[in-house]
């Protein structure tokens, strides 16, 4: 346990420290000299601002999309299905996680391709689906992370006693009111838990956008390119602090709202 903490938090601390170093542009060696140069570039050059906003937007959309799909699925599993079918449904939800991430992403690439299944499906409606780009990236990421949203919400709903739903109905609330007044507030912490997965996984992903994103880049691509092509590890470290800071900020916001201290 102790070594796990050292290895895990130690590497994070090293990354944090190296974000304040620079690379000698002539020799390519790392200069261990404390300065804010990397951050200055990140904050002042507009390209990074655009990428940051774009990454955040994609992460928020993926999270919202997953929450919208996951809540009804999780509710159906926890409150409608019989115990046997419920276990079967859990297996079905988890099954895609066993398949390679790359295979699934390339499957979406095929579907979004020119003359792919999406074009064919939408043709009768005279809709031209967008090709590779941010929309395809968002949809693919939402597909990939959906199980991580369903499972915590399902767990939360399973713990919710049926009698609470009956009591709400008994006291005169329609299904919609019960959903808003009783179900959502009680499973709110589960939704937050799921959103932490979808949010951080999206912010850390650079492969999906490369495969289905066309020319678009996300923050993780900046990290990747600076580690690989540019060989600027300190700048990559500085860019990698972006998702961490975002998640911390998100958690702080959730805590401040008091939604987790409801019980």
């Amino acid at each position: 346990m102790f070594w796990l903490v050292v290895a895990y938090l130690g590497s994070l601390a090293t990354m944090f420290a190296s974000a304040f170093w620079t690379v000698d542009s002539f020799t390519g060696n790392i200069v261990r000299h404390f300065n804010f140069g990397n951050f200055q570039i990140l904050f002042t050059q507009s390209v990074y601002r655009v990428i940051a906003v774009r990454s955040l937007t994609v992460a928020v959309l993926v999270t919202l999309f997953d929450a919208l799909i996951a809540i009804p699925i999780a509710f159906f599993m926890a409150k409608v299905l019989s115990q046997r079918l419920r276990n079967f449904a859990i297996v079905i939800i988890i099954l895609p996680l066993w398949a390679s991430y790359l295979v699934k992403t390339y499957a979406w690439r095929t579907m979004f391709s020119d003359g792919g299944v999406l074009v064919w499906l939408l043709k009768p409606f005279h809709i031209n689906p967008p090709g590779y780009g941010l929309f395809a990236t968002t949809l693919t990421l939402a597909y990939l992370w959906l199980p991580y949203m369903i499972l915590p919400i399902y767990a939360g709903l399973e713990r919710l006693p049926d009698s609470l739903l009956e009591a709400s109905s008994d006291l005169g609330a329609s299904a919609g009111k019960t959903f808003r007044q009783v179900i959502i507030p009680i499973i709110y912490p589960s939704i937050i838990a799921g959103s932490l997965f979808t949010f951080s996984l999206t912010l850390g992903d650079y492969i999906v956008v490369k495969i289905v994103g066309g020319k678009s880049q996300l923050m993780a691509n900046v990290v990747y390119d600076n580690v690989g092509t540019a060989g600027n590890l300190p700048f990559a470290a500085a860019a990698a602090l972006f998702p961490i800071a975002t998640i911390l900020g998100y958690l702080y916001f959730v805590r401040r709202s008091g939604a987790l201290e409801n019980f």
Binding site: P161, S163, L164, E166, S169, G172, S174, F263
Partner: peptide, 20 residues
């Protein structure tokens, strides 16, 4: 008639109070 339109109210065995 669904429960929310019946003029009866129930006290549940586990009380079913809304925890939040």
């Amino acid at each position: 008639t669904p429960p929310f339109n019946r003029d009866v109210n129930t006290v549940f065995q586990d009380y079913a109070l809304f925890p939040h």
